[in-house]
Design a binder for these strands. Structure first.
Lengths: 338, 338
DNA sequence: TCTGGCACTCGCACACGCAGAGTGCCAGGG
DNA sequence: CCCTGGCACTCTGCGTGTGCGAGTGCCAGA
């Protein structure tokens, strides 16, 4: 186990490196933080920390920089979450309250997060599986062609075309619409399959094919749309990455364009609180030199989606975590109100 | 007026510079293109071209590079649009045909354009104003709260909440729905206002307030949604920009995040054919070192939206223009079919 | 266990010199 | 009149060499 002072040294190294972006040496450390010991002692501690793999030196006779393992220790043990100040909170709230619809909420959240953290922000649209149905609408576009519209309690709208096996009369349509809504309105998506199972039986034989088709389209929508959408922003902040960044930035931009990758990234965060994945902890190798800070948010007590930021491993973890947590909280409030 | 040979020299300079990304000198020019004259002669021509502002040298005793004005002349007079090859056309068609809905069409188009041109692709969603109404649906969510859903012929769906001044019965709702659809279905958005003008008069006095509210919401949707959405992709291609690119890339990324800027950019292109805006011709100064190649596309003969690419001024104009034009054409076809 | 001292190691910035590419200009020839 | 070959000049990029400074590791002493 590392002594208390060595942990303090590590903390100091992380803080200084995050601030200056330059390897930090023993002398500078003792000057900027009053550790109460001399540089020589700090050097010994550094040697030990390096031995354990928490810090490394880019070249012999340069200062030390934290490794992924070092950041991990820092995040887990040495740093808390820095809460937002009262004015910041107010600003967040004001900014989000101006939103007019779900798209706008998400768009504003992305911009807000990017601005607060000065990093790349990623916000997942509220997921369908955990939300509830507000309304299902069926429109007849042609004799054997329907449009299915699904409206969720988070304000999301999904539409699907349905090609019917047989023409479907207006009366049957109205009947189906009414029955469908009385069963599923207000219910959770996960409950829908069992609730509509026996619906075709209530109809004439000639209509059953169409009813089944409509239902299976509805169920498909619930599942398929779990390839959920997300929005990203603040990519201009990537330019603050580092000096050598043509090489660093490219894979990151590529990864950010792959929605699948990002969704997996956010999905991996299982904690109820803020999750941090540092450098090589990220499965996708394009993101090996980045850290991802994410958290779930939701309209009720429960998380319906995730949001987070992607930035260099050399980031201000306490501040970023604080911002992410605060934004998630207020977005949740906004969603609950609407 | 410039002599024929001088134009050839300019063309050769543009082609070589685009290929090599390095200033091109008189000797290299005569070697790579058989102009039939000596380097010395070419030097004289270059001096003249520089005098006129078509080319410039980064430093004394370096080769020449084209200026924005040089590219402009090249695009206008010296180069055509390079048509896609047959296999390329087939590939485009196949790729786009797999799309399942409008979002998917746009997403695929973006990826396709980015891949073909190796640049940043921008695709505007088919605009509302020029498309026609397929269906208007009204749903009652609460006694005095309706949801208005608008479905366009391009498959786009917009929804709006409507708070009614008075409760609105199911019968009135069905009536309004029927009347509304019989008037506007299949009609152009621009025609809608005059078509629904007198609708409230057909209703009982107590319902007129609500009907008016619904109508004005509908009209608002048409106008307001002209803050149209768009999708971008291929930002990773920005890394191919140049050597000094931290400085170049930042404002570009910033500009790309401002939807307003991009929409204005695309909107400026008035030509029926492919439009090219080179370097400083772009109003937004973050894009002063980029060129924008754009074109309108549409489901019928008429353009309902724009798409294009953003890349360095040093780009392969004929190839890019060909790719943009071809993609626009096929997207139009796909939209017409669906 | 901490401290001060000391020798050592690198990386970085800067200066120098050289080779190569490109230019402008000029006088001569078709 | 236009083109050509030649010539002197300019500038960039690159490889080499040197000095400085920051930082380290180790050791002896408190």
């Amino acid at each position: 186990m590392l002594s208390e002072r060595r942990l303090q040294v590590l903390r100091a190294i992380v803080q200084d490196y995050v601030g200056t972006e330059e390897p930090v040496g023993s002398k500078a450390l003792t000057e900027r933080h009053n550790l109460g010991v001399s540089p020589a002692t700090v050097r010994n501690d550094m040697a030990a920390l390096e031995e354990e793999g928490f810090i490394a030196q880019p070249h012999t006779s340069a200062g030390r920089i934290p490794t992924d393992k070092g950041y991990r220790l820092f995040v887990d043990k040495l740093a808390g979450v820095k809460p937002m100040t009262a004015p910041e909170r107010r600003a967040i709230q004001n900014f989000l309250e101006g939103a007019v619809d779900l798209d706008d909420v998400v768009a504003r959240t992305v911009r807000l997060l990017a601005q607060l953290t000065r990093q790349v922000a990623v916000v997942q649209y509220p997921s369908l599986t955990r939300s509830t149905v507000r309304h299902v609408e069926l429109l007849s576009l042609a004799p054997a062609r329907l449009m299915l519209v699904l409206i969720t309690d988070t304000g999301r709208v999904e539409q699907r075309m349905v090609d019917c096996p047989a023409p479907f009369g207006e009366a049957s349509l109205a009947d189906l619409r009414a029955r469908l809504n009385s069963r599923v309105a207000g219910r959770r998506f996960t409950d829908v399959p069992s609730l509509v199972e026996d619906l075709p039986e209530a109809f004439e034989a000639e209509d059953r094919g169409t009813v089944s088709t409509v239902l299976s389209t509805l169920l498909e929508t619930l599942v398929e749309e779990n390839e959920e959408r997300l929005m990203i922003g603040g990519t201009a902040n990537l330019t603050r990455f580092g000096h050598d960044f043509p090489l660093t930035i490219r894979p990151v931009l590529e990864a950010l364009e792959e929605q699948v990758v990002l969704l997996k990234l956010l999905g991996e965060a299982k904690d109820p609180g803020v999750t941090v994945r540092i450098g090589h902890e990220n499965a996708h190798e394009g993101l090996n030199s980045t850290s991802v800070v994410s958290v779930g948010y939701g309209s009720g007590g429960e998380a319906v989606a995730k949001l987070g930021v992607v930035g260099p491993t050399r980031m201000d973890y306490p501040g970023t975590m604080g911002a992410v947590r605060a934004v998630a909280r207020y977005v949740g409030q906004i969603l609950a109100e609407s």
